[in-house]
Amino acid sequence: MRHVALVTLVVDDYDEAIRFYTEALGFRLVEDTPRPDGSRWVVVEPGMERQKGQGTGLVLGRAKDEAQRVRVGDQTGGRVGFFLHTDDFARDYTRMRAAGVTFLEEPRHEPYGSVVVFQDLYGNRWDLLQPAPTA
């Protein structure tokens, strides 16, 4: 079996990114390990109930140079680049709004599920999506 285990998201600051992903989005901090070069290995995963390594996690990588800094918040050219699936759209939408997450539209109910676009603290676009039940 194979699956995508980690995806890197370039950020400005480790601690502010950890706060946003854990407090506003409800991710859990899986690892925060200092590295010899002064960087850190920081991994967060959606949901509190998952076991480490059971889903796709985000490596929060601090930008190291100007080429990386210009990518912070625009890693996908303005497209939705990340898709956060939920089993309870109303619960997560309400909690995220209360936590100050910026939503770019009103929730929509499409044939494929309930969805709304939001931004992370750097401006990357995400879908919060509860897939429609399959027949």
Rank of each mutant, 00 (worst) to 15 (best):
E31H: 10
V115M: 07
R95D: 10
A98C: 06
V116Q: 00
R95S: 10
R50Q: 02
K52G: 10
E106V: 03
R28D: 07
F83G: 03
M1C: 05
G53A: 05
E23P: 02
V117M: 00
G47C: 04
Y14I: 05
T8K: 13
Q68E: 15
Y14E: 10
T134N: 07
E45K: 06
R2Q: 11
V115D: 00
L58T: 06
E31A: 15
Y14Q: 06
E31V: 09
V10Y: 09
A98P: 01
A24Y: 09
P34V: 11
L128A: 01
V116R: 00
I18R: 01
V4I: 11
S39I: 06
A17C: 09
T76D: 05
W126T: 04
Y21R: 04
D15V: 01
G47M: 01
V70N: 12
R91A: 14
F82T: 09
Y93C: 01
A98M: 04
R108P: 01
G26L: 02
P36Y: 13
G55M: 04
R19K: 13
A63T: 10
P46H: 00
V10H: 03
D87K: 12
E110M: 12
E105H: 02
G53C: 03
V11G: 00
E16M: 05
F82P: 00
T76V: 14
D12S: 15
M48N: 10
F118N: 05
T94R: 11
